[in-house]
Simulated assay, not measured.
Amino acid sequence: MDYSRNWLFISELEQQKLAEIKLLIVGCGIGGVVAEQALRTGIRHITIADGDTVEASNLNRQNFTARDLGKSKAETIGHRLTNIDSTANVNIIPMYLRGDELNELIPSHDIVVNTIDFDAPEFPLVHKICERHGKTEIFPINLGFGSGMTILNKTTPGWLEHYQVEAHTEIKEAILQHLLHSGVIKDYLVNSARRYYQSQVEYDSQLAISSSISASMVVGAIVSMVKGEQIPKFPNFQYVDVMAPIII
C-alpha cells in the first residue's frame, strides 16, 4: 500500500507506528467499515471476527454488496481488504467470539473495536479482559445521521460498574439513556428514541452515513493515540452528527 498521500496529516514515524498496531475487530457490521478505513489509513495487522452471514438488510449500511448475500461476513470483509492490499496481515475468524476465544486473542492485540451485540454477555467481557491485559477498547455506536464513540482502558470504569447494572442485557438501555440525557444529542434523535421505544421493533434503525462516521471516529481516535494526543475516555463519549454542522 502506498501511503504517500497521507504525508501532510500523518508523519512518517506515525505511519510506521500505525503499521505496527495489532487491531482486533469483533463484529463485521460497523466493524467491516472500520476495517477498510483502518487499512487505508495505515493499520496493517487486522483481525476480523464474526459468525454471521450477509443479509439483504445489511446492504444499506455495511461493507457488502448483493453478490455477498449468504456469505460469511468475516470472510467477505477479509477478501475485500486483501483485494485492497494483498501484503497486509489480515486474519479472518468466521465465528462469534466467546469467552475462551476473547481471552486468547485480546492479549496478542493492542486495540479492540467492540461491536458485539449489546445483549451478548461477551459485550462487557471485552473490557474486563482488556483491563486485565492493559489493552484499549474502542466502542462506536450508530446514532441517526451521526455517531457516538468512547474509549475504555485499565484506567476507566467498566460498563456494569459505571452504569451500576447487574445484567449485560441492561447496558444498551443505560448507554442510550446516558446519551439522550447528555444535553448535546439533537432533538430529532430524542424524538426518534421515543418512537423507537413505542414501536417495540426487534431491530435498530441504522444508516450508512452513521456507519461511515463511526468508522472515521474509531480510526481518528487510533491516529490520535499514535500522535500522543489526549482523548476523552469513558464515561465520556465523543459525538458527531451531520445534522448539527458547525457554521464558520
Rank of each mutant, 00 (worst) to 15 (best):
Q16R: 12
S211A: 15
N153S: 14
A215M: 04
G32T: 05
K73L: 15
E229Y: 09
F9Q: 10
K17C: 00
Q37L: 12
D117E: 13
Y3P: 02
R40V: 14
V226H: 00
N6Q: 12
L81Q: 01
Q15W: 11
L13E: 15
F118G: 02
A88D: 15
M217V: 05
I248P: 11
K73Q: 07
K128N: 06
Q198N: 15
P235E: 02
E104G: 02
A215N: 00
E55W: 01
I10R: 05
G220Q: 03
A38D: 13
R67Y: 04
E55C: 12
A66N: 03
V223K: 02
Y188P: 03
K186A: 10
F237Y: 15
S182N: 09
S57V: 14
Q177H: 14
A244G: 05
G32D: 11
G144C: 11
T150V: 08
P107R: 05
N83W: 04
S147N: 01
I46H: 11
N114F: 14
E12N: 13
K17H: 03
I141K: 11
S199R: 14
K154N: 12
N103R: 09
D50Q: 12
L160V: 03
H45G: 02
F123H: 09
L13R: 10
E170R: 06
H133S: 00
F118C: 13
E161S: 08
N60F: 02
I48Y: 13
F118K: 07
T87L: 14
D204S: 11
A174L: 06
N191L: 06
R5A: 07
T150R: 00
L59F: 06
G146C: 09
I92H: 08
P124N: 12
T150A: 04
G70S: 07
D50F: 10
L105N: 06
G27D: 01
H168N: 07
N89F: 15
D2M: 00
D117R: 05
A35N: 10
G99Y: 08
V26Y: 07
I246A: 13
G70T: 05
L13T: 14
G228R: 09
I175Q: 07
E166A: 13
V113A: 00
T156H: 01
Y188Q: 02
D68I: 12
